[in-house]
Design a protein around this nucleic acid. Structure first.
Length: 180
DNA sequence: CCCTGATTCGC
DNA sequence: GCGAATCAGG
């Protein structure tokens, strides 16, 4: 299956989109599979795509990259949003991990089909939409919940409940868990 | 030492 | 055209 890997139209197209979205060459190479970051960079140059907005440190200072503060004020890449969206977990000492990579609870999907039908890509994400990350940010399948977010919060009612849990409840759960 | 992209050059 | 090796740098 992995035999004839080459720069097919599909792979080149994916390369283009990921590169223009600010993904690093190594990340892109990992997603494409069968190629190294050198191959990706080489291809990018041959395609004339080199020179984009600098996503992270490590690039020659040609154009100024967005500062961490700017990125926080107005996230631009999926990675940036993914890195900050699941952050807000006040009150409690720690938050439960978002439904990352594998864990798409089939049961939940089956029970609440409407809840998962709104997932959107960064391109369709609007200010009023839930920014709960779904999937691996380094993957093209990455999506955001996209549900209607609560005014003033980055999440919909469902994900806000997961993100913001009362300290009291968690405390109780911990004791039940039998630690200490 | 981790990472970044840029360039070279044999294939 | 391709990409490993290498370079230059954060």
């Amino acid at each position: 299956m992995e035999a004839g890997l080459s720069w097919t139209d599909e792979r080149v197209d994916l390369l283009r989109r990921l590169w223009e979205d600010g993904q690093s060459a190594s990340k892109i190479a990992a997603q494409l599979g069968g190629v190294t970051r050198n191959a990706v960079i080489g291809k990018v140059h041959r395609l004339g795509l080199a020179g984009r907005v600098k996503p992270l440190a490590g690039a020659p200072v040609v154009a100024r990259k967005r500062s961490a503060r700017e990125a926080e004020a107005e996230p631009a890449t999926a990675a940036e949003i993914a890195a900050e969206a699941p952050e807000p977990i006040a009150i409690t000492s720690h938050r439960p991990a978002p439904d990352f990579p594998p864990a798409p609870p089939a049961a939940a999907v089956d029970t609440v089909p409407l809840a998962v039908s709104e997932r959107v890509t960064i391109m369709d994400l609007r200010e009023s939409m839930c920014r709960w990350p779904m999937g691996d940010p380094t993957t093209p399948e990455f999506r955001f919940c996209g549900g209607r977010s609560i005014t003033g919060l980055p999440y919909c009612t469902h994900h806000a409940q997961i993100a913001y849990q009362p300290a009291a409840e968690r405390k109780r759960d911990r004791r039940v868990a039998g630690f200490r």
